[in-house]
């Protein structure tokens, strides 16, 4: 094969590897962004404890201290009736007149806002903390997103499993595609392998350049796929707001590319180096 032919084979192999990896990259981008949305939702998971009107500010602060020492609680914040009113006015200025209509005796209830450690932000654990709190003296009501939290917890759980499962399936199938592409490229150079073997080259001497080539092809192919996916991501960024992959995921794609390329060469060379037939 002449130099031009070799270059064409290399470029075709590179393009095939890049396009194969692009499918994987797009899957990762979608998973990453979906995961970010769900993670943000989970960040907001907390408990709001509304206090009875009879609870004094001192008792409320004591209650907040008590809650802050419960397992799974990260922080507590006491919201006085005055602060609640200020928040209401700031958040819903068009509804502010309602407060005036209800008269000077009406005031919003004091509350304690509780944030939880990340591992306690599941439906079951938040519910457990909420049940304990609701039995405490002075507590009027406890709100913790009972309606949406089970769905959110399930969605996060399913997404995590789906990413791992689909990621594994894609990674394995992708590795096989890349491996086979590299193997076919090597098969075109069977004469080189045969001659090297006949002149007395040891197996490793024959294999090393091909494995190195597979490594380079896999890495360059996966880097090319990241560039292509990055370009698509950039073009879509104004119409579909999203983030590109974080650094460690990019490193994962490159490592997978290098690994599958080297594996392809190794598999190709296993059948490529002639052994004595008995």
């Amino acid at each position: 094969m002449n130099i031009r032919g070799k270059l064409a084979t290399f470029l075709i192999t590179l393009l095939m590897v890049s396009l194969s990896f692009m499918v994987f990259d797009i899957f990762l981008v979608v998973s990453w962004n979906l995961g970010t949305v769900l993670r943000n939702e989970q960040e907001n998971v907390g408990i709001e404890i509304f206090l009875k009107d009879t609870v004094s500010e001192t008792d409320a602060v004591n209650l907040a201290d008590l809650v802050s020492e419960m397992e799974g609680v990260r922080s507590v914040y006491y919201v006085s009736p005055q602060e609640a009113e200020a928040i209401f006015r700031a958040d819903m200025p068009e509804q502010a007149d309602l407060l005036a209509l209800l008269g000077p005796q009406f005031h919003l209830p004091a509350s304690i806002q509780v944030t939880l450690h990340p591992e306690y932000r599941t439906s079951e654990r938040v519910g457990g903390v909420a049940r304990t709190v609701s039995g405490m003296d002075g507590v009027d009501d406890v709100i913790y997103g009972k309606e949406y939290l089970p769905g959110l917890t399930r969605a996060v759980d399913i997404l995590e499993k789906l990413v791992i499962l689909a990621g594994l399936v894609l990674a394995v199938s992708l590795s096989l595609v890349v491996a086979n592409t590299v193997r076919l490229a090597i098969a075109k150079r069977a004469l080189t392998v045969q001659i090297m073997s006949i002149v007395g080259a040891p197996g490793w001497f024959v294999r090393m350049p091909f494995i190195g080539e597979g490594l380079v092809t896999g890495t360059a192919g996966s880097a090319g796929s990241l560039l292509l996916t990055g370009a698509v991501s950039w073009m879509l960024s104004s119409s579909v707001p999203h983030q590109f992959l974080p650094g460690d995921w990019i490193a994962l794609v490159l490592v997978l590319g290098a690994g599958s390329g080297a594996a392809g060469s190794w598999i190709g060379m296993r059948s490529g180096v002639p052994k004595p037939r008995r």
């Binding site: 045969q194 002149v199 007395g200 197996g203």
Partner: peptide, 18 residues
């Protein structure tokens, strides 16, 4: 490989690396 290094082999189709 050690055996083959003691041999020199010539083929009809030359088998040179292009």
């Amino acid at each position: 490989p050690l055996l083959r290094r003691k041999l020199g082999i010539v083929f009809q189709d030359f088998r040179l690396l292009p």
